[in-house]
Amino acid sequence: MIRPDKSLLYYPRMPATWWLRKWSYFLFIVREFSSLFIAAYLVLFLVQLYQLGNGAAAYSTFTNSLKSPGWIVFHAVVLVFAVYHSVTWFYTTSIVIPLRIGGKEIPRAAFTAINIAAWIAVSAVVFGLYLLQ
């Protein structure tokens, strides 16, 4: 293979703002950053478990503190990112694990819809159990 003279090549540089150039790139970055919000929530969840180990009084003081407007906003923001992350995750699953019925691969959108329906059903059961407690 004949290779060009490297000293004469022009090497383009990727601008730091590449993720603003296309909507799909922007959505990708949002999906990546959504992990940070989910990680932040998990830290809070670990603290919650820790407080559970400290006894009923400590736990209820902690959960009461979560009722402040700041924490409610935090949970709402995390929920939005968690839902977005989960939906993209289900879509990814349909690509990674093609589902075949009768030898034919079912459309990815249908597989994603099945996953999301199952997710909503499980969430509804968990919410129902919470209401019943």
Binding site: R3, K6, L9, Y10, P12
Partner: peptide, 18 residues
């Protein structure tokens, strides 16, 4: 094509890909 070194005008160097 983006992300490739340019040899001349619209011609990119694809030897790295090969």
């Amino acid at each position: 094509l983006e992300n490739f070194p340019v040899i001349k005008d619209l011609v990119i160097d694809m030897s790295d890909f090969l």
